[in-house]
């Protein structure tokens, strides 16, 4: 049960593909200024790896906890909670105090608050709404709007001309990756993903439903809370790195489920993570180098993901 088990073939192929695409991304057309370009590319590649893993793992965990395969944490407004908390911290500490905090300390503080708030908010919501799925999702979506509006309000109360703040939050950009945050984000994501892998066998049992899981001796409610805490941390990382990516997780996990060849969480987590990174890197390669559209990838992914979500809704795949 606890053994890692054999990696299924599609996962292996995906990894090989990722290695190749990653190498091409790093090395193709380096030109004479390789000493400048290579570190830049390496940073961006590392950012995409962290982002992909964070989004994939967070979505898998969230879908298991909410027992729903068309949700991502971002659809339910988890990223909006992070944006609100960040704005709230600026309000409490003052813009100067906030800016002078060391990155690690600031981010740790944000993560702690985020986990507590997410558990309080989404723990209740998921527990309460499990009978009426549509109402639960709608609540999450509206909650997201409410939290974002509150963040907007606070930002403007502090600075009436906070145009830039509001806009920057609502547009995703992979090129705007915060390099200073990256090492810390990588460490946190690695830790959270490792924890998720460690929990995988238990998540398999939890996926059978609360009653069955409890009957099999699982501490179900504790596990759900732990998984939600991991979701909160991972979404915070992803949002801090590039901004709100609502639907990427939906596409990635929906594609990863058949590829993983098993309903178990270990292969699913790995396949989804590799697939997410592969999609980001390959997509960025195509859009950045071939099509010369620097920032089109997130928009395309989000558009496709939104359409996919609508399609699933209309197909009645809500449960």
């Amino acid at each position: 049960m606890t053994s890692v088990g054999r990696l299924p073939w599609p996962g292996l192929w995906l990894m090989l593909a990722l290695l190749m695409v990653g190498a091409v991304y790093l090395l193709a057309g380096l030109g004479p200024r390789a000493d400048v370009v290579l570190p830049l590319r390496a940073t961006r590649l590392a950012g995409m790896v962290v982002l992909g893993v964070a989004i994939a793992v967070a979505t898998v965990l969230f879908q298991t906890v909410s027992r729903n395969r068309i949700l991502t944490p971002q659809i339910m407004g988890v990223d909006a909670l992070y944006i609100l908390l960040q704005t709230g911290l600026v309000l409490v500490l003052g813009p100067v105090g906030f800016a002078t905090l060391p990155v690690a300390g600031k981010f740790t503080l944000e993560l702690v608050v985020m986990v507590l708030a997410a558990l309080a908010l989404f723990g209740t919501l998921l527990g309460r709404g499990s009978q009426d799925v549509a109402r639960m999702i709608l609540t999450g979506v509206i909650l997201g709007i409410l939290l974002r509006s509150l963040a907007n309000l606070i930002a403007r109360l502090m600075d009436p001309n906070a145009f830039a703040v509001v806009q920057a939050e609502s547009v995703v950009s992979l090129t705007r990756l915060d390099a200073g945050l990256l090492p810390f984000a990588a460490a946190v994501t690695g830790l959270a993903a490792g924890l998720a892998v460690w929990l995988a066998p238990r998540l398999d049992v939890a996926a059978l439903g609360r009653e069955t899981a409890v009957a099999l001796g699982l501490r179900h409610d504790g596990l759900v809370m732990l998984a939600l805490a991991l979701v909160a941390v991972l979404v915070a990382v992803a949002t801090a790195l590039v901004g709100p990516l609502t639907f990427l997780g939906l596409i990635v996990v929906a594609l990863a489920r058949p590829l993983a060849g098993s309903a178990r969480h270990l292969p699913l987590l790995i396949t989804a993570s590799v697939l997410a990174v592969l999609m980001l890197v390959a997509g960025q390669l195509v859009f950045e180098r071939v099509l010369r559209l620097q920032s089109a990838l997130p928009a395309v992914l989000e558009g496709a993901g939104g359409v996919a979500f609508l399609w699933l809704l209309l197909k009645g795949r809500i449960r």
Binding site: A134, A299, E302, G306, V307, F309, L313
Partner: peptide, 20 residues
Amino acid sequence: LLIPLTGLIWSGVLGAVVLH
């Protein structure tokens, strides 16, 4: 409740296109 949900996602998709 699927009707407002569909509407919100639809307007979200359109909004993302406009922003982009």
